[in-house]
Design a binder for these strands. Structure first.
Length: 273
DNA sequence: GTTTCTGTTGTCAC
DNA sequence: CGTGACAACAGAAA
């Protein structure tokens, strides 16, 4: 599940939980989710402490621990989530770490365990874990996006998903954005005129803002994400049969009619003059 | 029943 | 810059 909008949702969940009080208990049910920190060390760092206000950078969540200078860095991979319950009942089989706070319990739930939880000290430490990330994609201005994209020669889909260029765009967000902007995913930034570039910038923010508000990538009528998994999916805008290919090792869905490889479509809702 | 493929995340070698 | 292998796992497809 997790792309930027999901992680933004987890940030709010964690932020609310943090305000409830101190951590009373930590249970590591699967050490495979911990990186560079033992279960004992994690417990020692958390129990009795208060969590600070979490921040998000791309798909990373960083949680200060009041008192010491340590922070948690969380990455949810493809299948992770953060679950809060005020009345904890059954433990889910994929709950890897439980953190009890006054008033409830946080669960780091993850089926595939591709990433997980780190305990980091200074900023250098954090950067060693996350890699050097580009600016967060949410709220990125048109000028800032331009500055980051300038000179990139790879296919747009790959560039948008490169966390070092901008942080937070995942596979589905990239497809949704390019579809909305009517730009073919295999095109290059430098080939586009300024209007098409601005369209990508605007589309990206529309997709991210609407989704982040809800805590997950939207899949409403009129969205590519809504139909992309269907076997013979058609473009929600023009009805053409959608195409699927692989770019950068990821499944890529686009509309051959709206997103031409050689330029913007000349038909459709947008008037051509 | 068993094997193979797929994937909203990444890294690495070539 | 692009591709393929890989990591861990479950569910679907073959």
């Amino acid at each position: 599940m997790p792309e930027l909008p999901d992680v933004e949702g987890f940030r709010r969940v964690l932020g609310r939980a943090a305000k409830k009080g101190v951590v009373s208990r930590v249970e590591v049910r699967d050490r495979g989710i911990l990186h560079g920190v033992s279960a004992a060390r994690l417990e020692q760092a958390l129990v009795g402490a208060r969590l600070g206000s979490p921040s998000r950078h791309g798909k990373w969540l960083v949680v200060p621990i009041a008192g010491g200078g340590d922070r948690l860095a969380l990455h949810f991979g493809m299948s992770g989530s953060l679950e809060w319950s005020s009345r904890p009942g059954e433990v889910h089989p994929h709950d890897r770490v439980l953190v009890d706070v006054d008033g409830g319990r946080l669960a780091f739930r993850d089926q595939r365990k591709l990433h997980g939880i780190w305990l980091v000290a200074g900023d250098e430490d954090l950067e060693r874990v996350t890699g050097r990330l580009g600016p967060d994609a949410l709220g990125l201005s048109d000028a800032a996006l331009r500055a980051r994209m300038e000179g990139r020669r790879a296919r747009l889909k790959s560039v948008l998903m490169d966390q070092r260029v901008i942080a937070g765009v995942g596979n589905l967000t990239a497809d949704e954005t390019l579809w909305r902007a009517r730009v073919h995913p295999a095109r290059r930034w430098g080939e586009l005129d300024e209007r098409a570039q601005a369209g990508i910038s605007r589309s990206l923010q529309e997709v991210l803002h609407a989704s982040a508000r809800r805590g997950h990538l939207l899949a409403e009528p009129g969205w590519l994400t809504r139909v992309r998994e269907q076997p013979d999916a058609r473009c929600p805008r023009c009805g053409a049969r959608l195409q699927t290919t692989r770019i950068g090792g990821r499944t890529t869905v686009w509309c051959p009619s709206c997103q031409r490889e050689d330029g913007p479509a000349r038909s459709g809702p947008r008037r051509t003059g």
